[in-house]
Every structure is written in C-alpha cells, then in structure tokens.
Design a protein around this nucleic acid. Sequence first.
DNA 1: TTGAAAGCGCTAACAC
DNA 2: GTGTTAGCGCTTTCAA
Lengths: 350, 350
Amino acid sequence: MTETASRPTLEAVAARAGVSRATVSRVVNGGEGVRETLVERVRRAVEELGYVPNQAARSLVTRRHDAVAVVIAEPETRVFADPFFALQLRGISKELTVHDSQLVLLLTEGREDYARVGRYLAGGHVDGALVFSLHLDDPLPGLIHGAGVPTVFGGRPGWSDGMRVNGPTVYVDSDNRGGAREAVRHLVGLGHTRIAHITGPLDQTCAVDRLDGFRDVMVDADPRLIVGSDFTPVGGERAMRELLERCPELDAVFAANDLSASGALRVLRERGRRVPEDVAVVGFDDMLPVAEQTDPPLTTVRQDIEEMGRLMARLLLRGLEQRGRDEQGSVGGAPSSVVLPTTLVRRASA
Amino acid sequence: MTETASRPTLEAVAARAGVSRATVSRVVNGGEGVRETLVERVRRAVEELGYVPNQAARSLVTRRHDAVAVVIAEPETRVFADPFFALQLRGISKELTVHDSQLVLLLTEGREDYARVGRYLAGGHVDGALVFSLHLDDPLPGLIHGAGVPTVFGGRPGWSDGMRVNGPTVYVDSDNRGGAREAVRHLVGLGHTRIAHITGPLDQTCAVDRLDGFRDVMVDADPRLIVGSDFTPVGGERAMRELLERCPELDAVFAANDLSASGALRVLRERGRRVPEDVAVVGFDDMLPVAEQTDPPLTTVRQDIEEMGRLMARLLLRGLEQRGRDEQGSVGGAPSSVVLPTTLVRRASA
DNA sequence: TTGAAAGCGCTAACAC
DNA sequence: GTGTTAGCGCTTTCAA
C-alpha cells in the first residue's frame, strides 16, 4: 500500500505562478487565448507542484466524466470461460483510449446486482453505457432507460422496434443469420444431406438468428436434427450425444459457436466417427484459441469481435458528441445500428 | 441512444419533503439520528422524484469514490487469448460488489498508454488500484507510486524489497515454485529421468519461480532440457520442436503453463509420440477450458485464480478501511502479502 | 433532532 | 488576455 499525499489544487498552482485560478484552468485545458509567457509560467508551476486536476470537481461543473460503462450481464459462469467478451472489451478499450475516455466495467452475477448497476448508471458516473449479452427477459434495458444514459447495445436486443421511447435503439451486431446460411450452404456444397444443428441459448437473438439461418437453407429439416444447447463445450457434448442417438446416420453438424463445436468434436472422436470423413463439423465465431486448437482444426464462421467492440464505442462516443453540439433533441446525424459481415474460414473439419 | 434527463438534486428532495438539505443527506446516508417520521417523509420524496445522489459532488467532499482501478499492463495480444485475466477479474468483481465498490478497468496496450494511466490514477478517480502482469522493467510501479494510490499487486513484483518507500509492497501470488516442484516430483515419481522444462517469459516472476522450482528438483538438469518460451500455444509448439531436436530421448515435459503445454502436446502427437507412454506432460494453471480439452487431458498444477482476484480486492479494501480508521501513518494491522498454495491435478497426460 | 452555512476544487460567464 | 465571481450538488461542522 502506498501513501495518499494530499494533492495540490488549482489555487496552489495559481499562487505559485502568480496568476488567477481561471488562467491556470485555461492553460490546463489547452491554453487557448493565454499569452505564451504565462502559459509557460503556469506549465512550470504545474510541473513543480505535480498538479493533477481533481476529476470530481471538474465533473461536477462540466457534467462530463470521460468514462463509459461496459455492462456485462451474464449470470452464468460462461462469461469468463469464453474469450468472446475479452475480445470485445479489448476493442472497446482501444477505441476509448483514443478518445481519452475510461472504461468502467460492471459485471452482474445475478438479479441482485441489477439494482446496483442501475444506481451506478443513474449516479452520473459515466457519459454512456455499452451493454452486452441481453437475454430476452432482461430487466436491464428498463433500468438503463430509467437511468437516462446514452447506450449502445452489443448484439441486437430482443425487443421489438416499439421500444424507441427516446431515440431509436442503437446496436452493433454480426450478420448471424447470413453467416449461418453460409456455413450450412458450405456443408451442402460438400455433398452432405443429413445436416444437424446445435443451437445456442434461444433467449439470445444471436442464437435465434443462427437457427433461422440454418432453417433458411435446410427448409424442411428433420426437427430431430435440431437440438438446443447453451454455447458451452459441455453443452456441445451433450447435444452431440443426443443427436447421435436420435439420428445415427447424420453426416454433418453446424454448431452455433466454436465452444459447442469443440464439445461435439470430442464426442464424435470418442464414438469413433472420423471428422470430416464421416461427419463434417462447422462452428461459429472463429475464436482462435478454440478453433485452431481442436482436432481437427475447426471450419467456422468468423466474426470480427474486436471490431464490434471498437465500433460500439465509436458509435457511443459519436452520439455523445452530437448531443454536445446541438444541445436539444438532436435529430440529424444520430448514429444508427451496424451489422457486420461474417466470413467462412475453412480449416479441416468441413 | 437514450435521453439524459436532468436529475433532481438534494435540494429538490428537501423542498418536496419540507426539510433541509442536511436532513435529506442524513437520510440518504443511512438515516442515523433522524426522527422516524421525517425519515419516512424523505424516503417518499426520494422515491417520487427518483432521486439518485450525484457521485461527483459527493466525492468532491468525502474524497471517497467507491471505485477501484484494475490495471492490466500487457502489451501483447496474449492477455485476451488467456482466460487467466478474465478469472481474476471475476474474483475481483465479486469482492468489490460485496463492498459496493466499482471496478474501473485500465488496459494498457503499449508505452504510450502509461501516461494516461498515471494521470488517471493521480486524478483522484479511485480509492485504490489492483495491478497485474508486471514485467521486470515496467515503468508502472513508478507511476503508481507517483500517483500516491494504495495498491495491491497480482503476482510478486520483480523489484527487491528496497522498494518499500511508503509501506511495504502488498501482493497476492501463488506458490509457483512449490507448485513447480510438485509437478516435477510427480514426473520423477513416475520414473521419468529426462525431464524437460518449457519456461514462461522470464521477465515475469511467476515464470522465474516455476523455473526455480524445476531446478530445485532437477538439480543438475541438462541445460539443453530447458527452453525458453512465452506462455502461448504457438510458443509451446516451437519450444517442443526445439526440445525434440536437441534431446530426442526426453521422456517428460513440464510446461510453465497449460497453454504452452497444449502446444507441446500437439507437436508430440504430430511427431507420433504417445502421451503419456512415450512422453509425459504436466502443465500449470489448471485452466479448465484448456486443460480438460487437450488430448489427452492435461495433468497440471492448479492455482485458484479467481480466489487470487478476490483476495487482492479484499486486501486492498481492508487497507483502505484501516487508513480510514487511523488517519495518520497506520502502523499495526496493515495488510500484508499472501501466497496461495497450489495442488497437482492428475489427468491423463502424466 | 434539525437547520444554516461553509466549503470541497473546478469551470464559465462576465467584467475589466 | 486576464481576473472576479458565482455556482456545480453534496457533506459536515456548528448553533439552535
């Protein structure tokens, strides 16, 4: 532990430099319209005293915080077994850094945490929020709306467009449906006909969209070939066993993400089915540490997760700027949602 | 994006409840020493107006922030290919939540970011800092010290004890050396004699400690059996190839972490060496998604990473409380470093 | 028990 | 250009 020395204030710097507080403030905030010699003098005083502005005081008057909350609402353990969030965080962090904004991470581990998050958001700590992993029945959007904080969502939220209470909902998403279609078409192109799908949790839109994409191609798929799962390796194993039991003759599997695909691969190996000769497998995400590590390496649908994070931050910050420019009811130029393309990455599994 | 309504202030609540600001403040902060009827009246006004305290204003006077910075200084991409940090974060987040404190994440992607972090820490945004992944030549400790922020380190920092400028350095670490010893002894117990070691980056103390543990047991190890690496799967592959070239007759490998062990396993399989029959492999970390997923599943040294995170937060908060109690130069009761035990987890690879 | 009043450190009009 | 002044919203003595 280190000591907390009491820090010098603007006042002290002003005294030392022999100018007024206002002048110091001007210099500290860019130095526009201050004589060069004074700027110099103030800079020196700042340096000598080791002055750093007190943000609480600054925020109190400017009402800006240069901080953005990232809310990750994922009760399950999964969040952290999955590089997904980490990658998004990284993209966000990079973009925020460029704009000199800080990242405040709010993780919720259960319903009890929601009140805390709501309080925090409403407490005027941050300029905006980035929100992930919404489930259909999530109370979070309500809280956020109540807190009145500008928000960009990661992944299309599940509610209908009616929710445009104050301005449209802004989100960044991948083309989950299109990506899924491409994956399944690839399997079809390889000559497979009995293609199964291991879904993600269907209370999240990305899982639903991937299922829809699967159905787009396999228009009259045998319902026994679709089995629900949860994006985890263990869930993937379970689903694969179920599938093998229901339809031993299946010849391909499209898993809703790489993690569940890895579980499926394990079961296939265990059961002596060769991949891709007996059963071809395609995943989704292109999570490198997973997809490249499986045996055989996984053919999968790539989405640029880091870019999604970066984009979310960019949209949010742009929106904040907008709002700053025209203080009331900004109409034109408000940012709108973005859907990023996906690409199929061919490896050995299909 | 959502609208930012201007929030009601203490003043407004006071007016509505027909009391003074001071009374409202008391009620909001617990309500000690206020007549029950008034408490009730104020609570109702708060409710009706949807009042939430402005934290900037509060911090300005209390000098507390109920926020802790987590600094992750890892220039390489590795940070996020590795569940390690995510797990620590999770432990930290849980503990902070209990104490109603917020987590502010500061990621540094390169030297340029350091100044920003220093500024932030010094800016009085947070009550303390939790710092990870220090490399030997890291400028971060200096910055932190300059910022005068109470800090707990994750992993023993590399500097000598002399650095106790203001109070001893507090850290939380695993018993890396002991764990390594146990791993190697296990291999010895299995009858292996030509045991190799794939190290981590030796500018981090955990990697050095694991190497030391290896040497403790293999007192006069053939230097060709020790090869440097970097904690990544690819690094592990490279190291394994190198080892196989230098010493084709090796019969066991202790890798400094699971990720590099997974790379080593892949190379061994590729070269047709059976694991564990021809070459036994032990990792370190017991990162479940890695260790259980490898083929064969990895025998490894488990460290409770989430617990480390939790403990770091706990030590920091305890220190802050201490400091709150006795405002000057707290002597007794200051928290001190903790080293957590490790355990060997036997799976199939050794 | 409650209220009045004095700031916390800073910015932003507004004068000079 | 530079200084003066009035708050931002809250907590916290100090009196009543």
